[in-house]
Computed example of a mutant assay.
Amino acid sequence: MTAVHGICDERFAGVRNLFERRLADGSDVGASLCVIENGDVTVDLWGGVADAASGRPWTRDTVVNTFSLTKTVAALAALALIDRSLLDPDAPVADYWPEFGSAGKGSVLVRHVLGHTSGVSGWERPVTLADLYDTRTAAAWLAEQQPWWTPGDGSGYQAMSHGHLIGELVQRITGDSLGAFVDREFSGPAGADFWIGTPESVHDRVATLVPPPPSGVDYSKLPADSVFVRTMTNPRISPSVTTDPGYLAAELGAANGQGNARSVARLQSIVSNNGMLDGRRYLSPDTIDRIFDVQADGRDRVLGAHVRFGLGYALPSPAAPSVPDGRVCWWTGFGGSVVVNDLDRGVTVAYVMNKMDAQLVGAPNASAYLDAVFAAFDGTAEEAV
């Protein structure tokens, strides 16, 4: 059986068994899983291989592209500015970024950006991934275009534009890029190995993604002017690019964070621990409460699923039945990476991996681990393993 490393409280024996089985049968190739409970690490597991071609092992310090799970770290940056009264969720984006108010976007509020209801879920002009590496120019292009629907009228998942929108707000307010701000205010002080804009010294620790099977979606048969197609195909991003130096160095706050379950859980435990980590206050309880202000609750125009968005995070919704109800916020990344903050229990659960599932939300790999973890909390673990 594939070796699994790390620590696991005996209450989560079923979770460890699941982790071992999935690595042994190939459901996972390389992965890490972490549970932090009231500030204490109760599960920190890793194993498998980081690169299937070479057999390079997944070690304690392996990191991997987390795709849209990165958005939860961008959310921390926005929440920090809200906490310091430097950013008002109910103010127009144009108050901080005047150019953004053009083309009918004067009514777009900061909370519309954080809740995916801005109407700016992608780029009107054709763009390449390399274009998006120049984050300031790509943000300026977003500022020039009209919204694709009435801002605030339901969500349209900002698959790639989300990071550019938040990043430009951070830049305008602080003078720092999003990656630099996250490193200075969160990753550095927390000792978390998570990067938006990964230094070259980290590149050799990055795992290689195993692409998902075909999704079955034939984009050529869908209306070219639909919000879904315009958002998800301009540009299309292949998992094969995620170890390229240019991709790693870029600061794509929507998609190219590099980390492992431990670093993700450590950062996000700030939320589940009511703003605290290791005795340091990062966010006030009042700011944490703002996460649960519902911004959209219905079928998302891009994801096609019923998603409930709060401020910077999704909330429990039909799209993710494995996310428990309650005072819970979460998000996932393409392929199945996931983080859940359960404030009722004081728990953060994070899973990241290199073998990808095709499903965008509620991927089976993430759901399996969430089911096992919360079964352990609920005393139904035998049913989950």
Rank of each mutant, 00 (worst) to 15 (best):
L252I: 15
N234R: 09
I288P: 07
P57Y: 05
I270M: 09
A140I: 07
V93M: 11
T117V: 03
A249Y: 05
G335A: 06
L87V: 14
L132A: 06
S284I: 10
D278P: 07
P245C: 10
L283W: 13
A261Q: 01
F377W: 09
F292I: 13
S54K: 12
S155Y: 02
G39C: 06
F100G: 06
I196K: 08
D153A: 15
L79Y: 09
T150N: 11
T72E: 00
L311I: 14
T198C: 09
G104N: 04
D83R: 13
A372Y: 03
L18Q: 08
G216N: 12
L283V: 14
S107M: 06
E185Q: 15
D9F: 08
V49L: 08
L311D: 00
R125G: 10
T242F: 00
N365F: 02
L303C: 08
G362H: 05
P364I: 09
G298H: 11
T233H: 02
G119R: 08
Q295E: 06
P316A: 10
F67E: 00
R281E: 08
V352N: 09
L311Q: 10
G101S: 08
D378C: 07
D25E: 07
V127D: 02
D83W: 08
S68H: 05
V41M: 07
A78D: 04
A350L: 10
T128I: 06
D218Q: 15
P57D: 03
P92L: 12
P212H: 15
F309N: 11
A250K: 11
I36C: 03
Q268S: 02
N256G: 03
G312Q: 05
V347G: 11
W149R: 15
F228S: 01
A381W: 01
G275F: 06
R84F: 09
N17K: 15
D90F: 13
A368S: 11
I7H: 15
L132D: 01
V271Y: 02
P324M: 10
N65W: 03
A78K: 11
F374R: 11
T137I: 12
G362E: 00
T208N: 07
T66A: 14
L267M: 14
T198L: 05
R60F: 03
S118L: 06
I237Q: 01
A314S: 15
I36G: 02
R21H: 13
F194H: 07
L109G: 01
G298L: 09
S155E: 00
A130W: 07
R290E: 09
V120F: 04
G39E: 01
R299D: 03
S32G: 07
R230S: 02
T42S: 08
A50D: 01
K221Q: 14
D244N: 13
P285S: 13
H306V: 14
W330V: 13
V202H: 06
I166Q: 02
R262H: 09
A314Y: 03
G26A: 06
P318I: 09
T117G: 05
V264N: 02
G188M: 10
S177E: 05
V73M: 12
G216V: 11
R184C: 05
T287H: 13
S367Y: 01
S226M: 04
P239M: 01
T135K: 11
V43M: 03
G197V: 05
A53D: 13
P316S: 12
G39M: 05
K355S: 03
